Computed example of a mutant assay.
Amino acid sequence: MFTEWMQMNSVNEEARSLTYAEFPTKFVWSKQQKQWRPRKSGKTIGRITYAPPTSGERYYLRMLLNTVRGPQNFEQIWTIDNVMHSTFKSACYALGLLDGDKEWNRTVGNSSST
């Protein structure tokens, strides 16, 4: 489903305007044909499989799939402002989805000193 989403983005202009989570609002997955088809009617809610923060790059990819619209390949998912990042985590930082752990470190530092 995921790679077929990127394939649909390469051939359908409307698809490129949607995030992966929004995609089922306009397209429906055909299990038999293993491809996305334009939705004719009905409402639906898209879901992305949960990935805990401890799952590393899976977690960061999930964050990007809720933000990036219309990628046609993996490189477009982790390219932010014409800079290709080497990891999904780095791309998340570039998009401002992560603030870093400075606040957490301050909290830990303060609690350990008292």
Rank of each mutant, 00 (worst) to 15 (best):
T49F: 07
Q35Y: 06
Y20M: 15
D101K: 15
D99S: 10
M63L: 14
Q33M: 05
K43A: 04
Y20N: 08
W78R: 15
R106T: 08
T44K: 09
R39L: 14
P38C: 06
A91C: 01
R37T: 08
E13N: 01
Y93N: 07
R37N: 10
Q7T: 10
T25L: 04
G70R: 04
N12P: 04
P53H: 07
C92Y: 09
R47C: 09
M1C: 02
L64T: 06
S30G: 02
Q72H: 09
M6C: 02
S30T: 00
G56R: 12
L65Q: 11
T49R: 11
G70T: 01
W29A: 10
E103G: 02
P53S: 11
R39Y: 08
G42Y: 05
S90R: 00
T87N: 11
T67H: 07
R58K: 07
S112L: 01
Y93P: 04
Q7A: 11
E22P: 06
L18M: 03
S55C: 09
T49K: 06
K89I: 01
G70M: 13
H85S: 00
S41A: 13
Q35I: 09
T79L: 12
L61V: 05
M63H: 01
F2E: 09
W104R: 08
R69I: 00
E4K: 15
E22Y: 04
L64Q: 03
Y59T: 01
K43N: 10
M1W: 08
F88W: 10
N12H: 12
Y60T: 14
V68K: 10
T107G: 02
Y60F: 15
W36A: 06
F2N: 09
F23M: 03
S10C: 10
S30R: 13
N9D: 08
Y50M: 12
T49W: 05
D81K: 15
E103M: 03
N82Y: 07
Q7D: 10
A15M: 00
N105Q: 11
F27T: 04
G109W: 01
T19M: 02
T67V: 15
I80R: 15
T49N: 14
T44L: 05
E75P: 04
T19E: 14
A94G: 09
S112F: 01
K43T: 12
N12G: 14
G42N: 05
A94H: 08
Q35T: 07
T19Y: 10
W29G: 09
P53F: 03
L95N: 11
V83E: 08
M6Q: 11
A15E: 06
M1Y: 00
N73R: 14
E4R: 15
F88N: 14
S17H: 09
L97P: 12
G42A: 04
R62H: 13
P38E: 06
N66W: 10
R106Q: 14
S30C: 13
P38K: 07
E57Q: 11
I48T: 02
S41F: 03
Q35P: 05
D101S: 15
M84C: 15
T114P: 03
S113C: 04
P52I: 08
R47D: 02
A91S: 13
I45P: 00
E57V: 01
K43E: 04
L98H: 11
M84H: 13
F27N: 02
L64P: 06
V68M: 11
R39Q: 13
F2T: 02
S90F: 04
V83F: 12
F23V: 13
T107I: 03
I77W: 06
T87V: 03
K34P: 02
T54H: 05
S10M: 07
